[in-house]
Simulated scan of single mutants.
Amino acid sequence: MDHEQSRRAFLGSLAAAGGASAAGCQSPGSTGESTPAGTGDADDPASNDGDAADAAVDGEPYAAVYESVVGSVASVRTYDGGGNGAQGTAFVYDDRHLVTNQHVVSGASDVSVRFQDSGWRNAEVLATDVYSDLAVMEMTALPDGAEPLPLLKSDPAVGQRVVAIGNPFGYGGSVSEGIVSGRDRTLAAANGFSIPDAIQTDAAVNPGNSGGPLVTLDGDVAGVINAGGGDNIGFAISAALARRVIPELITEGEFGHSYVGVRLMNVSPPVARANDVPESRGVYIDEVIDDGPAEGVLQGSDGTRPVNGVSAPVGGDVIVRMADTEIRARQDLTSFLALETDPGESIDVDLYRDGQRRTVELTLGERPDPEG
């Protein structure tokens, strides 16, 4: 039996007895050097771990997940050469690469990582993607016990228990538990774009957890922790998006995101009535960006019309389907583009224009360079 099979068998036997979940998030900008009174060394993983092996007993699935996963999770510390530092978390993707958030390593000239049973080691930032907030680091050698963590093959169920292991406030090897509170959430990205298909959790996530894994009780990564603020809500980049982006970052050094070149909004009842659309669903095209892929194919607003005292835009297309995917709201459109399409691909778009349903063919472009 290989490592993955034995790990799943062990976790499965404990999860059956009853378990829970946790998640965390990290924000850059502090080095976490201070140590609160009476808490031990905030930067020493051993000071927080306890005897996980002894704790992983029947009926303690959190301890089992921790014991199985923690050896593959690393604290991250970065410096930009100007006296500024940041900290976060990463986890092992394969025998040479670690995954973290782009915002954890952004601007870093020097990156160090530390595993549970190792000292600080140098790591090289191989590639980053600001539009998914994912980054890949490379190491010449990983410590013993640092095994790759598998990415979940489908989105977790709402209500499913999850666990986050990371480095909140510099306390390495910390674990928290919660559930999946929602799926297909939208997070802000660079240049007014968004990160689709994010996982929402109620697990405690704090500065220092960003880039760490949000894992199921089977030890599979449901998402890469991205954000949280202590209000019983946190977010992670979905495993589905990570499964698309990370391999491309490793092999190509970049990931091309599909681009339409429009500004859009959800279809509210006033917008539907003003544009003679039979249902309040789909996305309304308010503006078509000049020289973008949608120019000459899709149509934006050309005026407004009052509906029940509300000024509603008119003249824009209302998209209700792309290829075989129903588009009910903005989240459907952004998730479809991110998870199911590639730049240069041509797709059929079903829409309402001037009250009539029609189909147009759209060739997708690639999102512009965020530095451009």
Rank of each mutant, 00 (worst) to 15 (best):
G85L: 09
G85E: 11
A86N: 12
A86I: 07
A86H: 12
A86F: 11
Q87K: 12
G88W: 04
A90H: 03
A90P: 05
A90G: 09
A90C: 06
A90Q: 07
V92Q: 03
V92K: 03
V92P: 07
V92F: 08
Y93W: 12
Y93I: 01
D94R: 05
D94A: 04
R96N: 11
R96H: 14
H97R: 03
H97T: 00
L98E: 02
L98R: 05
V99C: 11
V99N: 07
N101Y: 11
N101S: 10
N101R: 12
N101G: 13
N101L: 13
Q102Y: 15
Q102H: 15
Q102S: 15
Q102A: 14
Q102W: 15
Q102M: 13
H103K: 14
V104M: 15
V105F: 08
V105R: 04
S106I: 06
G107W: 05
G107H: 07
G107L: 07
A108C: 08
A108W: 02
S109K: 13
S109E: 15
S109T: 14
D110V: 01
D110L: 07
D110W: 11
V111M: 05
V111Q: 05
V111I: 10
S112R: 13
S112T: 12
V113K: 09
V113A: 06
V113S: 07
R114D: 05
F115K: 03
F115E: 06
F115R: 03
Q116C: 04
Q116D: 12
Q116T: 13
D117L: 05
D117I: 04
S118F: 04
W120Y: 10
W120G: 01
R121V: 01
R121Y: 00
N122T: 15
N122R: 14
E124M: 04
E124D: 15
V125L: 09
V125W: 09
L126Q: 10
A127S: 06
A127F: 05
A127K: 04
T128N: 10
T128A: 10
T128W: 13
T128C: 11
D129S: 08
D129P: 01
V130S: 15
V130E: 15
V130H: 10
Y131H: 10
Y131E: 08
S132D: 11
S132P: 08
S132M: 06
S132I: 11
D133H: 13
D133K: 08
D133G: 10
L134R: 07
L134D: 03
A135Q: 08
A135M: 08
A135R: 06
V136P: 06
V136A: 00
V136W: 04
M137C: 12
E138V: 02
E138K: 00
E138T: 04
E138S: 00
M139Y: 03
M139F: 03
M139L: 15
M139H: 00
